[in-house]
């Protein structure tokens, strides 16, 4: 078992981490908003954790808290991400569809340039020698795993709550939702903030995992891959982002034996999935399921 964890432990943790980031994009999706801001908050959370863990002025705090500094990092990252999301979300969520996507891309870029130029973030080299929570990479599953479970439970509960139904109503038709007394901006900002908080926490947990943090974390490329997770997996179910992230993050690593051809395979999966599975993998599976579970008579057979 030890050998397996040595080889694939980091990959397992990466899968869960990517799934969490995909879910952070799924929250705005629930309210029908295409936001690509997650990588920005992910980077922000990571920087907060990295700075708190390495800066001299926090040394006394670190000594006093011991390992409990880590939960504190997550909390601070969550708070800062949430507040920033609120400030950014209120004006930008007045934008719709593709314009919101563009606005959030701009937000990610602004953060990136900021991180590159601040002294405290270490410029382009970033922050390194980040203290570790665990010795072994796979042990990080002990923090990412529970977070994933909590988030999934949260989404499950949310879907059947008043807020969740409001999200759904806005997703289906914002005008109609507004006419029925739902305040669209309020709920859209709420969905955006929840996603941002999640991305911030994941970032804060990831800084020790990667040993280092720099402005190459959470770029536009990352936005696109998270979006791909959600779209390939299926944007209408909470299992979609999960499955999409697991599949797309694992493929390049599992295909390592194919060497150069592995990226071709990866691209092939993307292309095939987006052409033949417009509702994502989960969408296709659930359609297949309903096809087989409905008696043939009900399908209008003779």
């Amino acid at each position: 078992m030890e050998g397996f964890l040595q080889n694939y432990g980091f990959l397992l943790v990466t899968l869960v981490q990517q799934a969490l980031l995909a879910l952070s994009l799924y929250f705005p999706f629930m309210a029908g908003q295409l936001s690509l801001a997650s990588p920005g908050f992910y980077a922000l959370g990571g920087y907060i954790a990295a700075i708190m863990a390495t800066v001299d002025s926090c040394a006394s705090l670190r000594n006093a808290l011991g390992w409990t500094i880590f939960p504190l990092e997550w909390l601070v990252a969550a708070l800062v991400s949430g507040i920033l999301a609120l400030i950014v979300g209120i004006p930008s969520l007045r934008l719709r569809g593709i314009y919101l996507a563009l606005g959030t891309i701009a937000f990610v870029e602004i953060l990136r340039v900021l991180f590159l130029n601040l002294d405290i973030t270490g410029g382009a080299i970033g922050i390194f020698d980040i203290p570790q929570l665990f010795e072994e990479r796979w042990s990080y599953i002990l923090i990412f795993g529970p977070l994933l479970v909590v988030v999934l439970l949260f989404i499950h509960r949310l879907q059947h709550s008043r807020t969740g139904r409001a999200f759904k109503a806005i997703r289906e038709d914002e005008l109609a939702a507004g006419a029925m007394g739902i305040n669209p901006t309020y709920y859209k900002v709420q969905a955006f903030v929840i996603g941002a908080v999640l991305a911030g926490i994941v970032g804060a947990m990831s800084a020790p995992l990667l040993n280092t943090w720099n402005a190459r974390q959470g770029t536009f490329d990352a936005s696109v891959s998270y979006l791909a997770y959600v779209l390939i997996g299926g944007s209408r179910s909470l299992w979609g982002p999960l499955l999409g992230a697991a599949l797309l993050a694992a493929l390049p690593e599992l295909l390592r034996p194919l060497r150069d051809a592995r990226l071709i395979m990866n691209g092939l999966v993307l292309v095939v999935a987006s052409i033949y599975l417009p509702h994502g993998i989960v969408g296709a599976l659930s359609r297949l399921w309903s096809f087989f579970s409905t008696p043939s008579a009900a399908r209008g057979g003779e």
Partner: peptide
């Protein structure tokens, strides 16, 4: 180049 680690050091 401010976004390149090598150049900025």
């Amino acid at each position: 180049a401010q976004n390149d680690a090598f150049s900025s050091s």
